[in-house]
């Protein structure tokens, strides 16, 4: 079982990213759940979403307290208090930031792998809007190999219709540009 926690702000698409990843895993004939910590949704407020992935049927329906992977969609949430809570030892972190991975060692001391990508820049240049979810998905897929990047393309085409190509390009660019740092913990 692989458990992922997504941090974003309302409007950046954290819930959608969690759903897209689960849908891609299911498309590859494995099992996944995507859910969010729903609350009084409003644009700009911090939101949490979750994806659970497994090779066998997932029966568990409680929240995720100790994620294997933490993904942060908003550059200002990367060092937010509590962002690294519960991360498993040698866990993976994927961040939207212009800074290198080494800058985040103190925030995520237990991380075995820290990856950074400037998803905001990619989103603004490709989509013209700071919606970072599909870029960060591309980076996450590169770092973890959870699904094939081609599967993500298929889901974007089904879900985003006329915006599909832009999202494909965003994810593929982030896939190439992500910086990964491995750490012996």
């Amino acid at each position: 079982m692989l458990e992922i926690r997504w941090h974003g702000r309302g409007g950046q698409g954290a819930v959608t990213a969690a759903e897209i990843l689960a849908t891609a895993v299911i498309k590859e004939n494995r099992y996944a759940q995507a859910f969010a910590a729903f609350g009084p949704e409003r644009r700009g407020a911090p939101v949490l979403a979750f994806t659970r992935i497994s090779d066998s049927e997932i029966l568990l329906r409680s929240q995720i307290y100790e994620p294997d992977v933490i993904v942060v969609l908003d550059k200002n949430l990367c060092t937010m208090e509590g962002v690294g809570d519960g991360l498993k030892g040698r866990g993976t972190v994927v961040l939207n930031t212009s800074h290198p991975p080494a800058n985040f060692v103190d925030t995520f001391p237990q991380a075995g792998k820290i990856a950074t990508v400037n998803a905001t820049k990619i989103a603004l240049e490709t989509l013209g809007s700071p919606i970072t979810n599909t870029a960060i998905l591309g980076a996450l897929v590169k770092v973890t190999g959870i699904v094939k990047i081609d599967t993500l393309d298929d889901i974007f085409k089904e879900r985003f219709k006329i915006y599909a190509d832009k999202n494909v390009n965003m994810a593929r660019r982030a896939y190439k540009e992500v910086t990964i740092m491995e750490r012996g913990v």
Binding site: A22, I26, Y31, A34, F35, F38
Partner: peptide, 10 residues
């Protein structure tokens, strides 16, 4: 609510 209604799964 949410636990089933809004959870994506196969």
């Amino acid at each position: 609510g949410y636990i089933l209604s809004h959870t994506y799964e196969p």
